[in-house]
Amino acid sequence: MIATYSSLAMVSSAVIYLLAMTAHALEWASARGADAKASPAGGGRVERFGRIGVALTAVGLLSHIAGVVLRGVAANRLPWGNMYEFVTSSLALVAVAYLVLVWRRGWVWLGLPVTLLLSVGQGLAVTVFYVAVAPLVPALHSVWFIIHIVAAVTSGAAFNLAGIAALFYLIRRRAEASGGARGYLARLPQASALDDFSFRVNRFAFPLWTFTILAGAVWADYAWGRFWGWDPKETWSLVTWVVYAAYLHARVTAGWKGVRAAWLCLIGVASFWFNFVGVNLLFSGFHSYAGI
């Protein structure tokens, strides 16, 4: 029964995020041509759509959090036992981080990519990844379950935010290079500020990701009697780590600063997602629970 309410809340959040994304798409569209400086009316419309998007995201997040909490209540455990639960929890954290940034810094410009991520992610979660509530397999009965997953969810949310900023950095930089940003791009922070934000978030995520791998290794030793076994999940977590290590080095290497570093950041996010989704769907390994 509670599980049904949880699913309902999750599906609602996906729909509301989709509406929020539509509002942000309109926000971008209305910024086109209507430069804020040239016509204040056009600027007002842009901001109105932006506010609607943020408000909808906040409503979606409430429903989303209700879904996650009810899922935990229904399962009578922390709701991180399978991919469905992991995706929904991680995305809730992304939404929270985004709304904090909007509240503290007024970063409504993150709206479109974040709501895109949220609606696609939640949409996939409720359609493709969904599994009914069930208890955990014995390997997950461990305090390391909580430590490992909290670290993974948090660094995952951060990697995604940093990736969005890196993407905008590339777009905005190109616009600046070809004679100034127009339309909504003009409303983004300057390229250098985007790059800086991306770095700050990655700087937070990278040590945490290292810790995630370490905690996973310690747990693997308890559960399976080896701390590292080149399981596809382990391999890809290392690949992700190495890509982000390269990113951090790139930021202090001449010729790699800026554009190339941003690309490495995007490759890092892609590798994180592949590890998260692709590995479970394509390869069989110790991290495949309950089908997916």
């Binding site: 080149w230 391999t235 690949v239 190495v242 890509v243 390269a246 080095h249 290497t253 010729g255 390869f283």
Partner: peptide, 27 residues
């Protein structure tokens, strides 16, 4: 040089991938 370290890191990430796709004898 830092550039070489950077490239080696990327190569390391790349060469680790086949082991996750193909079955591995020790595993």
């Amino acid at each position: 040089s830092m550039r070489t370290a950077l490239v080696l890191l990327l190569i390391l990430a790349l060469v680790a991938i086949p082991g996750s796709i193909l079955p591995q004898r020790p595993v």
